[in-house]
Design a binder for these strands. Structure first.
Lengths: 277, 277
DNA sequence: CTTGACTCTATGGTTACCATAGACTTTATA
DNA sequence: TATAAAGTCTATGGTAACCATAGAGTCAAG
């Protein structure tokens, strides 16, 4: 029982022959003895204990390198510390994947909204919850410039977002803002763009709050249609007796360079906070 | 603005030059044009949109291959389906890591128990919760054989466990069982070994339930000490007026081939259900 | 015209193996 | 005992998403 050939050792432990050879090569688990002439590896069944341990640690997500380190250092306290460390790493991983999962959720939600609303430009009233945004002021009015300039400003925002260690998943939900003051005085200008964020992602004082409330909303399919569509929305507000009470937001709901290749293809949602007069 | 060199494109988008070159090589994002003579890549800033999308999908955990597929097929429904599929994959991942996290938890708990109890052989009464086990009957009495035979039987259990698609993390918490009937008739024999499992891992009828209740427990450090230690425990039960009411379990709490290399080094917990007479 | 910054291709590295080829060894069968 | 079949050996190249490096060529400014 203590001269198992590699194939026997492998089948007994439900691993492949290559795996055992690999562990030998990296010095993680060396056969009990090796025939010098033929190079044949012979294992002792008691080495299964170490192999079990390897598989056990591996199934906790530990790398073979780390596992070997553990076998090298034989101090229980050091091992405990490594386990703690590894546990923290796993917790991070879980959070990371959770975040991804949420992102996919949002993506599907947005895609569905796009598929449903697709080509309509209808104006409607929506009750929207409080939202958090992270703003970037470029000092340049995007309505005075082409899409190229918009791209450059977006790059600036992207850098800001990455510097804040916010994952890229959030970057799909950006927008621009026209301030209430400017609206009142008839200036449709926007030098600020933003990205929607979840609370807790970055310090609160870095974020701005968009209040909950009634919003007049409209969807449109292209950057170029926005101004006309917004104008229509403001007229509708007037007709229906709504009074504008806050900033105007242009939210990029979903953008699919999937369809029209190589260029931004935006589905945007215009929104402005109102109250019934 | 539409003849950005690779370095400019890279810095604007917070990616490395190599990454862009890599995306070009695999045909995921090709530069707007390439100088045929020098091979220099020139990008258009509007290609940032596609790059954003790539980074966005990547941050959802999608592989570049899958992303490219998405760009190839341009059907929104197909994309939706892929997203759903990816979401399910992420959910699996999260569960997987959660399982790993629990495993590390248990491992640390066991290690601590080992470090605290280390060399004592004291007998004490513990209230233990209900537990689930997965049994394997080899037909061979492990107390009649050496550690080598025990290893072979463990390999059989391991195969059973793997065939049930139970992750290896569970395999660190095994044990052997002496049935109540055998105890009563004075036969200290064990042909069955088992692994502790969580409810829901495999169909309920594949698992056996170890009832909650009062257990007389003792720890010991080696396979060879078990029988003597168990005998001491039964005598103690007699003296203290406890009546044995169920199976005897020998649980391998933690085993650290970390310390004594190449061989199983067990820390085991003996336990038998009792009631006060 | 030179210098320094930039870019090019090609190669080897990362993890934990799997797959394959071509040569050799062991075991089982005829 | 000869041969066939199965097992084993080393060496190489592949996986994913890049990073690092070497050595050669290119570009823009002074």
């Amino acid at each position: 029982m203590n001269r198992l050939r590699i194939g026997q050792m492998a089948t007994m432990n439900y691993v492949t022959v290559q795996t055992l050879r690999h562990y030998d090569q990296i010095g993680l688990l060396e056969p009990a003895n090796v025939d010098e002439e033929t190079g044949y590896r012979y294992y002792d069944i008691r080495q299964s204990a170490k192999l079990d341990m390897i598989q056990y640690l591996k199934s906790m997500g530990m790398s073979l390198d780390k596992i070997r380190e553990k076998f090298d250092k034989q101090d229980a306290q050091v091992i405990r510390a490594t386990l703690k460390e590894h546990q923290a790493w796993l917790k991070d991983k879980i959070q990371e994947y959770q975040l991804m999962h949420n992102a996919v959720d949002r993506c599907i939600y947005n895609l569905d909204r796009y598929l449903r609303t697709s080509r309509t430009g209808k104006i409607n009233l929506q009750q929207l919850p409080e939202r958090k945004i992270f703003c970037h002021d470029s000092g340049i009015d995007i309505y005075q410039h082409s899409i190229d300039t918009y791209e450059v400003i977006l790059r600036q925002l992207k850098q800001q977002v990455i510097l804040q260690h916010v994952p890229m998943v959030y970057f799909c939900n950006v927008g621009s803002i026209v301030r209430y003051q400017d609206l009142l005085s008839g200036r449709f200008v926007s030098t600020e763009i933003f990205v929607f964020m979840d609370a807790g992602l970055i310090p609160d004082d870095q974020m701005e709050t968009v209040p909950a409330g009634d919003y007049l909303c409209a969807y449109c399919n292209a950057f170029e249609e926005e101004v006309a569509c917004a104008k229509g929305m403001f007229e509708e507000a007037d007709r229906e007796g709504y009074q504008i009470t806050g900033d105007y937001l242009c939210e990029v709901v979903t953008e699919l360079p999937l369809f029209r290749q190589e260029e931004r293809n935006m589905f945007i949602k215009l929104q402005v906070r109102v109250k019934k007069t």
